[in-house]
């Protein structure tokens, strides 16, 4: 049977302490797994942080990783987020040089893909896009064609569609 490596998302609720990220990263690295993306921020309770991690693993491995995460003292809860019950989104900021000839295609991209201009300087703009992984891959391809200078991309954030 072929090993089913797939990108899988985990939600980890942790105590907001200085070394908690190191502990979580260590749990992955100790078993030889790479964190594909990570995003973290405080929750309603500022002493508690929610971390969304995506990783490329098999189903057996993800189960084991989650058990190991739950064993960490500062982890309050670690669990899988399964699609399609959960929505997964990312965000990019992209810096584009402004030229007359590309203005039209840029305007079209912003309008059709729900982009936002967050900074406008003479000669360059920073645009913001959100979407799922596939959306953003496509948007990035088009931005490259428009001469994108640099970009920054967040990790995945995810949320279940309804209370389970």
């Amino acid at each position: 049977m072929p090993v089913q490596f797939k990108e899988r998302a985990i939600s980890v609720i942790v105590n907001n302490r200085p070394d908690v990220l190191a502990r979580i990263a260590g749990t992955f690295s100790a078993r030889g797994f790479n964190i594909e993306s990570i995003s973290a921020n405080i929750t309603r309770n500022p002493a508690v942080t929610k971390i969304i991690i995506t990783t490329l693993t098999t189903p057996e491995t993800i189960t084991n990783v989650i058990k190991q995460l739950n064993r960490l003292i500062d982890v309050l809860e670690a669990r899988r987020l399964r699609r399609p019950q959960a929505v997964c989104r990312e965000m990019i900021l992209a810096r584009i040089p402004l030229t007359k000839e590309r203005q039209e295609s840029l305007r079209e991209l912003i309008d059709t893909r729900g982009g936002k201009t967050v900074s406008l300087e003479p000669g360059s703009a920073v645009l913001e896009f959100t979407g799922d992984k596939e959306d953003l891959e496509e948007i990035l391809t088009r931005l490259e064609a428009l001469g994108m200078e640099d970009f920054s991309r967040t990790g995945v954030i995810a949320l279940e569609r309804s209370k389970s």
Partner: peptide, 11 residues
């Protein structure tokens, strides 16, 4: 030492 022992302590 907390960094060194992170993976060999329970906490």
């Amino acid at each position: 030492i907390t960094g060194i022992t992170r993976t060999c302590t329970k906490h």
